[in-house]
């Protein structure tokens, strides 16, 4: 049972309050009909599936109800940070350097 920081509630809370919601920063195209079959396929099905740092979405479904973004290491399951939906993708390396 992981502990997850909700950036809206500003509290670190147990995993049962949350649900996972897939990779982050996959925006729905503004005009899907303008996309080629290949572009639409990539949007629908192709994900990064990295070993290591993963930008992903969670929802505090049994809390404030908000979707938000998180950076989690898929090897250690450790969260680097969480941030609100709509905020730009943080540069993790820059954050790490700043912390050091």
């Amino acid at each position: 049972m992981l502990l997850i920081h909700c950036p809206y509630c500003d509290e670190t809370l147990p995993e049962p309050e949350f649900t996972y919601a897939g990779e982050a920063h996959v925006a729905r195209p503004a005009d899907p009909m303008a996309l080629s079959d290949e572009e639409w396929r990539d949007f629908l099905f192709v994900r990064s599936n990295p070993r290591g740092t993963h930008y992903e979405r969670w929802r505090h479904i049994n809390g404030c109800g908000r979707f938000f973004n998180a950076i989690r290491d898929t090897v250690t399951d450790k969260f680097a940070m969480t941030y609100r939906a709509g905020e730009p993708r943080p540069n993790l390396d820059a954050l790490k350097e700043a912390a050091e």
């Binding site: 509630c9 049962p16 309050e17 479904i61 049994n62 809390g63 404030c64 109800g65």
Partner: peptide
Amino acid sequence: GTRTVFDGVQ
């Protein structure tokens, strides 16, 4: 107050 989960129930 808060929304939370009690034994799997919201």
